[in-house]
Amino acid sequence: MTKPHPPSAGGGRISALDVIRGVAIMGTLGTNIWLFTNPDGPAGLFTPTENVEAFLRFLANGKFLALLTLMFGVGLELQYRSARRRGQRWPGWYLWRAALLFTEGLLHFVLIFEYDVLMSYAVTSMLVAYLVGRSDRAVRAWMIAMGSLHVVFIGLVTLALLGGRASPGPGGSTTLFTEGSYLDQVAARLDGAFGYRLEAIFVIPMSVVLFLLGSRLMRAGVFTGDLHGRRLRNRLMLFGFGLGVPLNLVTTFAGPGWFMVDRYILPPVVALGLLGLIPAVVHALRPDPGLLRRGLTNVGRTPLSCYVFQNLVAAILCYGWGFGLAATLDSARPWWVLGAWAGICLAFMVLASLWLRRFDRGPLELVWHWAYQAPQRKTRASARPAPESPVLR
């Protein structure tokens, strides 16, 4: 990788980043939608599927989550540059951002979705915040160490799965998601918190690698429109699609013993190809964006709101306390699942576009920004000298 450029002296929004973020958010729903639409809920992730559904799951499984993780690393890099540009102490207030993200993730987990990723990202960002400004040598050492830890863990679990000494997940049938109330599901998430949060814990080493890689690729110029940026994107596409996709196809149909490799090793490789492909397409398009690009951009500008609310909408549509479509349309799998995913994505592209006509941030982003600014306003107010009393003049 090329030597990282110093933090830019200027700002300016990079449109390709919003598009990539929008694709990642909708692609993440492409993984989660199979859980919402399964009558067994999240346990359905581990049940055997027909070849058509297995292939459709392959298209999204883990790849867009890894892409989203890379984009969090890019976002952290931008925050680091902004702090350096303003002469602010780092990580400073960024740790408060991470704490708010953890709180948001905790609420999302308890109230909406078992497999929230925000809590894991918050913990990862607290660690990476202390690494992003280190030398290339130090960053490479951390990436190698964390990457090796992740690969060894996944390898050991895979050996256990192949040897029949473990199962990839809970499996089994349940009526919780077809007949249980909303409060029943909240209670189940609290009761099974350790099991549901286990993934968020063991992916932290992988997330550290992807955060740091996203940061370094941003510095290397992967999103620029010059020749260097094009060459770097071409290398990412060659690596991600030439190596990652064929191997990931093999593990998808190789049986449940390869579940961990199929979800946690190869998808990040494919995600690097996506990270090269999407900005390449954006740079190749005409400057005036069409409807699809504007929709993706607006989802990318409201990622927190779209991520949380699209999961809430999917739960309302699919679970028994809502419209109960998971049970009603189970015989129409996998095609109705594709329709549900496309409908939710279209709805949020429209809603995000309408919202941004009046506001500069999404609804949750506005609340989050207010909470982030609140202690800073209080600190600045307390630092101001008290006005002189007119009685003492």
Rank of each mutant, 00 (worst) to 15 (best):
G295H: 10
G240W: 05
A271T: 01
R81I: 00
E77C: 12
V299Y: 08
T297S: 15
F202D: 09
V152Y: 03
M126R: 04
R165Q: 13
N32V: 10
S173K: 11
L227A: 15
V132C: 06
R97W: 11
Y182T: 07
G195N: 08
E77W: 11
N38H: 15
S181T: 14
Y130T: 15
V350C: 02
F55G: 04
P246V: 01
F113H: 07
E50M: 09
S389L: 12
Y264C: 03
P375F: 03
R357S: 08
V151P: 03
G195S: 07
G171K: 11
V209H: 05
N38Y: 09
I33L: 09
Y94E: 07
L65S: 11
Q88F: 00
A381S: 14
V152C: 02
R384D: 12
L232D: 05
A342T: 10
V281M: 13
A342H: 04
E388P: 00
R89G: 08
L45V: 08
E365D: 02
R357C: 09
A160V: 04
G229Q: 09
G229L: 10
P91L: 07
L161I: 01
M143A: 08
G172I: 03
V250Q: 01
F109H: 10
S8F: 02
W321S: 01
S82L: 13
M237P: 06
L277S: 08
S15L: 13
A340R: 03
V281E: 09
G225V: 11
F177N: 05
L156N: 09
L351C: 10
V261M: 07
F194K: 14
A220P: 01
S82E: 14
P205Y: 04
A327G: 13
T224H: 12
T328Q: 15
D116G: 01
N234F: 12
A381K: 14
V208C: 10
P4N: 02
E53L: 09
Y196C: 07
A314H: 09
P363M: 04
W368K: 00
A254P: 04
V281I: 15
L68Q: 11
L35M: 14
A9K: 13
F259P: 02
P6R: 10
I278S: 06
T124R: 05
R137Q: 15
G10R: 14
G164V: 05
R13E: 14
F46K: 02
F239T: 02
Q185P: 07
W34I: 02
F113Y: 15
C318N: 15
R380Q: 14
L56H: 03
T31A: 13
F55V: 06
A326L: 07
R81Y: 13
A271C: 03
L364M: 12
L291R: 14
D330W: 11
